[in-house]
Every structure is written in C-alpha cells, then in structure tokens.
Design a protein around this nucleic acid. Structure first.
Lengths: 345, 345
DNA sequence: ATGAAAGCGCTAACAC
DNA sequence: GTGTTAGCGCTTTCAT
C-alpha cells in the first residue's frame, strides 16, 4: 500500500525524496549529482547511498530546463550505408566514457525531416549535435551552430565558422587507390563516382575523392585516360549504366569506385556477364565495409577508419560543449585494405 | 540591438513571448498548442499568427516535466541488420503522421547499454518506447512496461502482460520456404539457424523459424532428413562451419537459412569452392533485404514486411499512449520473394 | 472563453 | 560545507 509520491510518472523518485532520505537539502543532492565543489565526503557518501537505495535517476527533462542533459544527438541522412555503424560506435565509446548518452535521428534522405529532427533535438535540450553527411547548406549549418554545439562528419565545408568538421582525407584515399593500380601496371583507370543532385554538392565526399583521383592520374602522367563516370543513386538505372560501362569497347583495365556498394554491384554484374575478375577488370572500392570481405568479393578498399571519425567528432563536440568556440577542421588519414579484387594489368 | 529574452539558450522564444505578442495569456497559448478545448477561433488564429511570426517552438524539455513530449524512442540491439531501416521507416511514417518524433538508441549488442538507454529515454520523458529484437528477459520487459508504454518487435514472448508484441509469423515464413522447396522436388532440406547464447533465447525469431521448418518437414513426411545447424555469430568461425557443411558427404540438396546474411555468405563460399548454384544446391534466405537482389546472388527470400511491422508497432504504441492497457499480440503474414537462388532438385 | 497561478524536478545563486 | 530559494518553460486546475 505504499503511497505514490507525486512526479512526472506516478511513483517516480525525485531529488527531494533522496534529500529527505539522506537527511540533507536538495541542493546538496544536486551538487553530488553534478560532482560540484563544496560537499564533504561524508555527506556525499550519504547521498550516494540513498540514491542507490531508492534507485533514483535524475529526470533529464527537468535537467534540460536549467543545465546539461548529458545527451548528444546524432543525425544520419539514412542508415543504409554500412560504414555508419562504426561511426556511431566511435561516437558512443567516446561519449559513454564521459557519461554522455547518444540518441540518433534518421533523416530518411529528406531535407525537411532532417532539419525538423535537428530542431527537435535542440528542443530536447541536447548538449550538442553531430551530423553525418548532411545535405544542408553551409549557411543552414552555421545557423544551427549558433543554437547548439555542432560537429559535422563527412562534409567537406571549406571554412566552417561556428562548427567543426571531421573528415577522412578522401583525396588522399583516392590517391592511394590510383597509386596502387599504377604500381600494378594499370594505365587505363576509370573512376565510378556518384551523381549528386544537390545544390551544395561540392561538399560531398565523392567530390573530394574525384579530386584525389584526378590529381593522382596527373601525378602518374595519365591525364589523357582519366575519366569519371557519375552514376545515379537509383539502383535499376545505375545497373543499366554499369552494364553499358562493362560492355563498352573502351572499357578500362581498372576501376576505382567511390563506394563499396557500387564496387560490389559492379563485380556482381561483371561476373554474371561472364567476365573473369580480376584478370579482365581490377576493382577497388571505398569504405572497407563488411560486405567487402565476403567470399567471392574480396574487395580491396579504402578504410576510412569510421570508428576514428566518430571518436574524433565526439571529442571535438565535448570540447565545444566545454566552451571552445574556434572552428576545427580535422582530417584523418585513410588506409588501404588489400584484397584480391585487383591484380596486374 | 534586440534584447535577448531569457531562456534555456539565450535568445530562445518562449510561450511567454508568444502570449505577449498575441496579447493573450500563456494558458491560452498552451491550449492552442495542444488543441485543447475552450479557445475561440479568433484567439486561436491570433496565437497561431504570433507563433509563426516569432518562429516559436515549444521546449520539449519543459513539456516533458508536465505532459507529453511527442517523442517516442526506438531501441535497436545493433544496426547491422539490413531489415532495420525499413522497420524504422515504418515507425517514422506512422508516428510522423501524428506529429510524433522518433529518436533511436543503439544497444551495441550490450545488454547493460541497452537497459541504460531505455532508462535514459524514460528520463527524457519520452511518451513511449519501441524495442526491436531485445535480448532482455520477459520480466525485465514487464518492469519497463510498468514505467512507460512499450511495444516490442521481433521477440516472441508467449504472453506479455503490460506491453504489446509485433512479429512477423516466422513459423509461417519458414513453412513457406520448405513447401516451396518440396514443390520443387527437394526432400533433403537442411536449415542453417543461429546459435543463440542468451538465457531467454526461446523468444528469438530464429527459434520460431526453426519450429516452422520442423513442422513443415513433418507435414511433408520428411522428418528423417530434417536437421538444423545452428551457426555462430562470429564471422570467421561461421565461415569454417559453412565450409565443412558444404564439403560434407551428406550435403543436402537445399538449405533454408534463417537470415539473408547467412544465405549470402553461404552462396559466396559455395561458388568460390567451385560449386554450381542452384543446380548443386538451392538456397533460400530470410528478410528479403537489399543484398538479396544483387546480381549473382538473386536470393529467394522471405519478406517480413519490415515496414508493416514498424507501422503496426507504432500504431499499437500510439493507442497505448492514448490509454489502452490490454496486451496485444500482432502477427503479420510474410511473403516469399521468388528469385533464382533455388531450383529443382 | 479566458487568465492567474501553482507546480513539474531540477540547477545555481546566494545566504548562513 | 550546507541549506534556502528563485526560477527554467511549460501544463493544468481553478477562478473569473
């Protein structure tokens, strides 16, 4: 028959209950909660005991009205990309160590949803936000950054003002791929990239990879044979594009694909049309995602160190929450995961 | 030079600002916000105009202390499974229509993280929670359900009390697969399932699929040849298991895999060992996930209607939030997506 | 139909 | 070192 203490949900233990149980003031409890100065070890222990005994958990909602919520929000454009789980894992690890919780929003590839999600996270009182490969403009990002600490992953903004960017060095990654293929004797190397429709497409990672590809081809004295095919995000159309690419008379001896998804698809289509890989076509991808390791795929691929990206973003965000305001542009070096999807020319 | 109104973040427009601008009381604004009774159309329009003009957005944190937050939380064990995006999409669609936002938490396959995420979502004042394939026990689920409206997807709890379950009819799906293979002339049909370590493994979807498989084999008079191989979640170990399965003298003519991931891996290993598919081995998977449609895979697979599952769960949750308390056990019928990974015996 | 006012559970001045 | 108390922005009786 125990009386329900009042609260948001009936039966919820509040800071007042803890204070009463420990025989101290609510301020004291609050201080213990926040590891603030000015609490004796004895009182502290007392409070901790009561918290444990009552199973008290502070209401994040109430906290959100005055101070920190110890929650950070992550917004993903969509969750199809297999490199996202590692990014999230990197973020969670870094945040979890500092007692922060991570909540994720999915943009479903819709710009309006993406923005309403950001609003919603801010309205929730989240302490900071991490965006992964956002489609919005630099001005929009700046506007959000004025409202909350913000870090952006996989978005090559040339000079952010009020937020930080964390990227893999996509140009360097692409350069490594070309160098590897050139070393294997290839000179006719094409790149399959992504057709980005957005207005602010210049910030997309695929563009940075294209630049790295072109630069590397130039460095190897291979400008004339350099060519970039930008393929659509629509699967059926893309497969048609790939088929015609594969059956064209001027098919190159090697292809660099901007993403593993495209590379794996290309390999499947090539094999099913009777081609022998890698002898007839070398393929290298980007992301070093789980499917790259599948039998029969064994895709050589650039590893972005997704976990590292997530970790760096989280660290940057936490320092921003702690008060830093100068913008940071972090760039992580990728590595090449060697497998058997490419061979000598 | 506009003065910063006080607020959680400086510059934030509050309900008070709106009230002042519209020349009404905060109570009136609040009522308009919640579509409550007792506001004249004129006042209502007035308030709406001010809200629009000032760009006001209610603070979810403040709302969480008294009423609804119009946010629901979704907890995923991990995000590797390719059928999850559709589940989320189904949830988001159904929730978005009612003005609810969806925030996601990732359990990283750690039970403690999973539970602390649930706590955190409750602490945020979320209006309800949806769990996807949770690993926790029925008692734990009941305990959470006492704290907040709860719906569970892909978890076969025989008789939930305080929460709802939404599942695909996994037994029926497995039955369809076997029936399809039997109709194609197969009689030696094995099943590759998942080795579940948990204590409460009986609620795992793979178990329900195993039951359906056994039942169907019985119905076809094929009990003697029925056999289930439970393979590990560890990729390298699993591939070794698959290799020995493929090279065994008593290899069946057809295999039903509990998930597309396993099926695709099996196909890759079989092909790379020189087998000709589907003539030497028919394979059918479960999930009808994107990779199932890849060239060279073309996997016949059971479609769970992931979007439908998400939608049903969201609908159930909203009705629970609206006050329903009797438990619901929803079961959706799966369908079979026919492709070329299986053929005649 | 409208508004005044009392909280919700917490944090952070400020007083002692 | 500890307690008192005034809010944070909202919802929700309860008067008017």
């Amino acid at each position: 028959m125990n009386e329900q203490p009042r609260g948001t949900r009936p039966g919820r233990i509040t800071i007042r209950d803890v204070a009463a149980d420990a025989g101290v003031s609510v301020a004291a409890v609050s201080k213990v909660l926040r590891n603030a100065y000015g609490v004796s070890p004895a009182l502290r222990q007392n409070v901790l005991t009561s918290i444990e005994k009552l199973g008290y958990r502070p209401s994040t909602a109430a906290r959100g009205m005055r101070g920190r919520t110890f929650t950070i929000g992550v917004v993903l454009v969509e969750m199809g990309n297999p490199f996202l789980p590692d990014v999230i894992a990197g973020i969670s690890d870094a945040c979890g160590a500092d007692g922060y919780k991570v909540l994720i929003g999915l943009g479903q590839a819709q710009l309006t949803l993406e923005e309403s999600l950001l609003d919603s996270m801010i309205d929730h009182g989240m302490d900071g936000l991490i965006l992964v490969a956002p489609r919005m403009s630099g001005e929009t990002l700046e506007a959000y950054a004025r409202q909350t600490p913000l870090v952006v992953i996989a978005h090559h903004e040339p000079s952010p003002n009020a937020y930080d960017t964390v990227n893999s060095d996509d140009a360097a990654g692409a350069h490594m791929v070309v160098a590897e293929l050139v070393a294997a004797g290839h000179s006719d190397i094409a790149m399959i990239s992504l057709l980005v429709a957005d207005d602010n497409s210049q910030t997309h990672v695929s563009v940075a990879r294209e630049k790295g590809y072109l630069k590397a081809m130039g460095d190897a004295g291979l400008e004339p044979s350099a060519r970039i095919l930008r393929m659509t995000g629509d699967k059926d159309l893309r497969q048609a594009q790939m088929r015609s690419f594969l059956s064209a008379p001027d098919r190159p001896t090697a292809v660099f694909c901007w993403s593993d998804l495209f590379a794996i698809e290309l390999i499947g289509l090539a094999r099913s049309s009777g081609m022998n890989l890698p002898s007839e076509l070398s393929v290298i991808g980007y992301d070093n995602s789980p499917p790259a390791t599948m039998p029969l795929i064994e895709l050589t691929s650039v590893d972005q160190n997704a976990r590292g990206l997530g970790g760096a973003a989280a660290t940057a965000l936490l320092s921003r929450i702690a008060g830093r305001t100068n913008p940071q542009r972090l760039m992580l070096k990728p590595t090449l995961a060697h497998r058997t999807s490419h061979g000598p020319a």
